[in-house]
Structures are given as C-alpha cells and as structure tokens.
Design a protein around this nucleic acid. Sequence first.
DNA 1: GCGACAG
DNA 2: ATCTTGTCGC
Length: 272
Amino acid sequence: MENGIETESEEQEQSNSSQDHHQKWITEQDNLREKLISEDNFTWKLPAAPRIGSQELRFVGGFDISFSKDDPSMACGTLVVLDFRTLQLVYQDFSFVTLHVPYVPGFLAFREAPVLLHILEKMKRSDNPFYPQVLMVDGNGILHPRGFGLACHVGVMANLPTIGIGKSLHHVDGLHHSRVRKLLEAEENSSKDFIPLVGCSGQTWGVAMRSSQSSIKPIYISIGHRISLQTATAIVQMTCKYRIPEPIRQADIRSRDYIRKFEMNARLKQNH
DNA sequence: GCGACAG
DNA sequence: ATCTTGTCGC
C-alpha cells in the first residue's frame, strides 16, 4: 500500500516536471514561429519558370536520422545534397551522435534539429559550394499541432528554405486517416495526385501526394520556411523517383548504411 | 476518462 | 525510429 502511494507520487512528480518541460518547449516553438515565412523567399527559380535574372535551382538537400538497434540513443544524422536536374549526389556528410532527448510527439525538433544544424553549420563554415538552396526534412513543417514542426524549426534556425515530408499523418485540426482517405478517394477519379489537406477550421496544412503509381500510401508535404506550398509541392514532385523524394530517400539509405557499418565494427571488436 | 500522437 | 519473410509484379 505505502509503496503504491509512494510510486504514484513519484510518477506524479515525473509527470509534472515533464509537463513543465513541454510547456517550455511550446513557448520556444511559439517564439520561433513569429519568424516563420510562408511564401517564396529566395533568389533562384524553378526550371521553365519566368523569373527573369535569377539562376535556376541547383542544390537540393535532404536530411534523415537513423538509430542503432543495439543502443537506441546512438544515432547517425545524414545530410545529402543532390543536383536538382540530375538527382545525382554532390555532397554527403554524417554526424554520429548520442541523443539524450526522447522523442515526444509534437516535439521532434528538440531531438533532431540540433543534429542537422550542426552538420549544416559545418558545411557553411567551410564555404562549401554545394550548400543547399532548399532542404527537405524527414518530418512535418506546419502540419503540426502548433503549426511549427521540425522543418519549420530548422528552417528558421538555419535561415534556409525548407520542406517537410511526412510518411505518416500527424493528426491535426480534424485531419485523420479516414478524412484524408475520403479526400483521396474523392479526387482519385479525377486523376489528381495532390490532395490539399484542409482541416476543420478551413486552414490548408499541406498536401497529400501519391508520389508513385505502385504505392497507394501518400506522403504528406507541408511548408517549412521561406517557401510556398505550391513551390514546395512542385519541387517534391520533380524529385520523386519512388514514393519518398530522392533527397530524403538517399539520406535515409546512406544513414542506415552508416549505422550498419558501425554496428558491424562493434561486433568485430567484441568477438576478439 | 480514453484514445491519438511526425520520427 | 526499429524488429522482420516472403511475395507479387514490371
């Protein structure tokens, strides 16, 4: 009985302190959100776009993190940069780190953003000519409970145009699976592969996109920073060879590869 | 009160 | 995120 009560109060304290921490995180998200730019804000143009006197988009970045199955706190953040026209890799970098911040839905940025910002900063410091003009992030932008997901967070902090790519739907403003499924089915016959994600409030949070013919499961595109949804959608479409756009897909593949090699090395050491 | 909840 | 086999199709 006494143990039961004691445990309960400890849990209560834990719960309270984590609630406090979440409140700090919420405040930080609310503050950063004031700097968010949700329209095109860059000097380049898309191919065939009539923007006189500006260079075409050339370098598209992608970011992802993979985790060790042996020790889930060990992670590898990977940044790749692809040539927009050829989708060939022109740059890659890895950051092997130990993460102490847990994943909490709605607060992904506090876990993953520092890793990405570190790799970006390193690249910028060295004046690397392949520094991305726009960055795709594995996670949502404004498609988020407070309209400020991972893609917005890194976009504002790195002052870089960013696009959020979700592989599953984060439920926001009445947007849940059955509602999106209905929207998809309704538009399916009209051969549209983009479905605006309009919530109950009437706000457009992003688009669901059937990126490849083989998969019925959509990806969820939302703006991060300094880009319009229309431009973001066009860029994602132009970089999709498979369901996941190439920048994210390459980052994912190479990140997993890095972790696997690390684990292999660890095994070899252990055995002899 | 219960369930839902990007990666 | 990660664990996991085969399987269907171009």
